[in-house]
């Protein structure tokens, strides 16, 4: 009798990912989907697709989905959760979406401690529109709109969303993770699980920030991109938990 070594999660559809080779969207999609399945909440989950490279992720997540305007996913999530508090609601957003155009929406969703879960992908660049500078682009990093490297005197230092949101009283669970190696992938999945458990328990706003890569727009091979993320991104964006529900913090 053959043993099943790898079974595709029910949280994903059969559609093949459209992402570039080496893009971490695929693995993060899979982790989220596995958690939804393992927590047995998939059939009551409503997800929100952003504007960005993952704009069509409603094709991949095997649950009800709504596609939102650029940056507005937390507001859309709020609308859904307020009228359907028994459903599980998550938004999936990139750094242009969440950390730039949608800063008001994410800050206020955290501020109200909206009982939703946010999956935040930070790869320091705008992928969809072709490699422009994001608010999270590192100082010195070259993009199409910072062709000489990001100059902090010109456009500031990269924004640290997890730190920023953990200063908002309403934020219940905030953790920054990475998926650059298998050990961190396992850790990342735990964080996602915790975030959804916080929501299931009705404890309020949860967000997991992923240090992610964009090999194509960074001009690197996938493995080099992972190494670069580990050496440069994580140095600036430290991994770890920033907020956890008080009663669990022992």
């Amino acid at each position: 009798m053959s043993k099943v070594v790898f079974e595709k999660t029910k949280g994903l559809t059969n559609k093949e990912f459209s992402y570039c080779p080496g893009c971490t969207h695929g693995i993060i999609h899979r982790l989220v989907a596995e958690v939804l399945e393992e927590l047995d909440i998939l059939d009551r989950t409503i997800g929100i697709s952003p504007v960005g490279c993952s704009v069509t992720n409603y094709e991949f997540f095997n649950c009800d989905m709504q596609q939102a305007a650029h940056g507005r996913a937390p507001a859309v999530a709020t609308g859904i959760k307020r009228v359907r508090p028994d459903n599980i609601v998550f938004s999936y957003q990139g750094d242009g979406d969440l950390a730039s155009i949608g800063t008001a929406e994410i800050v206020h969703a955290a501020h109200r401690s909206e009982n939703i879960t946010v999956i935040f992908i930070n790869n320091g660049i705008y992928g969809m529109t072709g490699g422009q500078m994001a608010p999270t682009t590192l100082v010195g990093q070259k993009t199409t709109t910072s062709p000489y490297g990001r100059d902090e005197k010109h456009c500031g230092k990269p924004i640290k969303i997890s730190e920023l949101l953990s200063a908002v009283p309403g934020a219940t669970f905030i953790e920054r993770v990475s998926v650059h190696n298998p050990a961190h992938v396992r850790k990342a999945k735990k964080a996602i699980k915790k975030a959804f458990e916080v929501q299931i328990a009705g404890k309020g706003f949860s967000l997991v920030e992923f240090i992610s890569t964009c090999p194509v727009n960074w001009g690197m091979k996938p493995q080099d991109a992972l190494n670069w993320a580990e050496e440069n991104m994580i140095a600036y964006y430290p991994l770890g938990n920033f907020r956890t529900p008080e009663e669990d913090d022992k």
Binding site: E16, F17, S18, Y19, C20, P21, C53, V55, T56, G127, M128, T129, G130, V216, N217
Partner: peptide, 20 residues
């Protein structure tokens, strides 16, 4: 082209693994 086999101006810059 991209993984979606798009023809016209599509703002989806996915590089297809088929190229590799």
């Amino acid at each position: 082209s991209d993984t979606l086999d798009s023809v016209k101006g599509l703002d989806m810059p996915y590089i297809s693994p088929a190229i590799r």
